[in-house]
Structures are given as C-alpha cells and as structure tokens.
C-alpha cells in the first residue's frame, strides 16, 4: 500500500483514536475496579457489555427509546446483574487462587453468551440512529461517535469523582488498598465488593449502550472488549484507576494510527503486539501499578 499520508489524515486519525479511546477507558475502568478491589479478573466483563448493547437495541426496537436515554435502563439493569453475580458466585472465589476466579467468570461468560444466542439468535443487529457526520474544516466525524465520546468522558469523569470524593468511593479505594485495614476501619468489605461489581457492570453496560449505535450487535461481541479492557489495565498499571483512563486513550490512538498503515483487521494484532511489548518492557504499566 503506497498511500500518501497527509497531515489532515493524521489529524483525523488522532481524533478518531481519542473518540474510540474514551469508550475503552470507560469500559476498562470497570474491569480495573473489580481487579483493584477483589483481585479478580472478570472474564464476563465484555459479556455484560454485550447485554448492555442488547438492552439498548431492544428498547430502541420495541419501545422506540432514544439509545442515549437507554443508558438509564441498561446501567441499573446491569448493576443488578453484577450484584447478583457477585452475591451468588464470585463472592465464593475472592480468596481462592486466581485459577478459580478466572475459570468461574469464564464459565459465567460462556453461559451468558449462549443464553443470548438462544434468546436473541446470532443475527447481526444494529441501531440506526444519528447516521451522518459533523464536518469541521478538513475533518469529518460521525455524529454517533462524537456523542458517545461525550457520554463516555462524562461518565468516566463522574465515576472518577465518585471514587475520589464520596464516602462510598473512598471506602472502595480503601478496600482496594488493603482489605484488612479497611475492615479494621469499620468498612463492610463484603458490601463494598457487591457495590464494586455492580458499578463495574454498570460502566461496562454503559459502554455497551454507547457502542450499540456504532457497531453490529451480536452475542459474541463482548470478548474483544474483555481483551481490550485488560490490555488497557496492563497499559495503565493494574489497580491504577487514572492509569485505566490514560491507557484507554492510548489504545484508541495506537489502533487508529496503525490503521493508517495496515488494514483494520491487522490493527487488532497491533494492539496485541503492544500488550506483549508492555509486558516485556514495563510489566507494572506505564503509570506504575501494584504487582499482582
């Protein structure tokens, strides 16, 4: 491919990268939260994103609900699902070796994906809303991406403010620093685990609702997001919440930039190469994190 790369193209790609990156940040923040608080990598994180996307699809399709308003449906719904999963299953493996929690959430994810296959079939679905683009000088941005970006940034900042300022947020951070000390301070750690899993699932569902207007919805769409969220956590440093935000942006940029030179398919492989490189050169993440 001998394509001439103009500055305008680079600008376009950088902006697309940031637009995509904000969504990665949002979803990855949820995964980072669960990992930070419980030391559990939730393989079903992307599956919950898929369920969030379906919530948006169905509420748009049947009720005609505005996809952005459907965040108000998908987030509480997935919060509840998260709480339920934590309460019935994940709670039992928090202190077990990693092998158990990885396998358990993997099992949950397989069961949920196939229930979705059974209930919704594997047909590709899409929410046709706000097609078209904003034009600004030499750049064009699809409207849905810009609005999703705005929502993702707002939600991430809100989640961040919540963790920093509110009493519950502080309790969550305290638990992720040291469970024993948090307990000694009178924090009900079990309850914090419930809330964390719920909030993380709500964030993932929000990501799902926001991508629903941009990509094809199908039961297996979530796995890629589990992987990418994990990649973001590795980039930002495990258990490091600001790191997750930065890592998401970085992943978005790298993917888009590599798509300048390669086909979109292969730019997925570039993200993978990035993971391997970071693991080799800077295993604690770019901002530094807790070792696992």
């Amino acid at each position: 491919m001998n394509v001439v790369i103009t500055p305008a193209m680079v600008g376009q790609v950088v902006i697309s990268g940031l637009l995509a990156g904000a969504l990665y940040s949002l979803v990855a923040l949820g995964l980072a939260l669960i990992f930070g608080v419980m030391r559990v990598i939730n393989i079903a994180h992307g599956t919950i994103l898929m369920l969030g996307a379906y919530t948006t699809f169905w509420s748009f399709h049947i009720l005609g609900l505005n996809p952005y308003l459907s965040l108000l449906v998908s987030m509480p719904l997935m919060f509840l699902l998260g709480v339920l999963l934590q309460r019935t299953f994940v709670r039992r493996v928090v202190d077990a070796p990693e092998l158990s929690s990885l396998l358990l959430t993997f099992g949950i994810s397989i069961a949920l994906v196939n229930m979705a296959q059974l209930a919704f079939t594997s047909d590709l679905r899409s929410v046709e809303f706000l097609t078209g683009a904003f034009l600004l000088g030499p750049f064009a941005f699809s409207k849905s991406r810009v609005i999703s970006f705005a929502f993702a940034v707002t939600l991430s900042l809100f989640a961040f403010w919540f963790l920093q300022r509110t009493k519950l947020g502080k309790a969550i951070r305290a638990t992720s620093q040291s469970r024993e000390v948090a307990m000694v301070c009178g924090i009900n750690v079990q309850r914090i685990h419930l809330y964390s899993f719920g909030i993380a699932s709500a964030l993932s569902a929000a990501g799902g609702s926001l991508v629903a207007v941009m990509v094809a919805i199908q039961p297996e769409m979530g796995q890629v997001y589990t992987f990418k969220s994990f990649l973001v956590i590795v980039l930002g440093g495990a258990g490091n919440y600001p790191g997750a935000l930065l890592g998401g942006m970085l992943l978005g940029l790298v993917e888009q930039l590599s798509s300048l030179f390669l086909t979109t398919q292969v730019s997925e492989a570039v993200a993978y190469l990035l993971l391997v490189l970071v693991l080799l050169l800077r295993p604690t993440g770019l901002l530094g994190g807790r070792s696992t």
């Binding site: 990598i41 990693e98 092998l99 990885l102 589990t226 590795v234 693991l279 295993p283 070792s291 696992t292």
Partner: peptide, 14 residues
Amino acid sequence: RLKGPYFAISMLGL
C-alpha cells in the same frame, strides 16, 4: 514471567 491473569488473558487474545 508474570502472574496468572496476564497469561490467561494474553492467551485469550492470541
């Protein structure tokens, strides 16, 4: 060289 989760998910991506 790293612990469990890194390996597990990098295999998922592989």
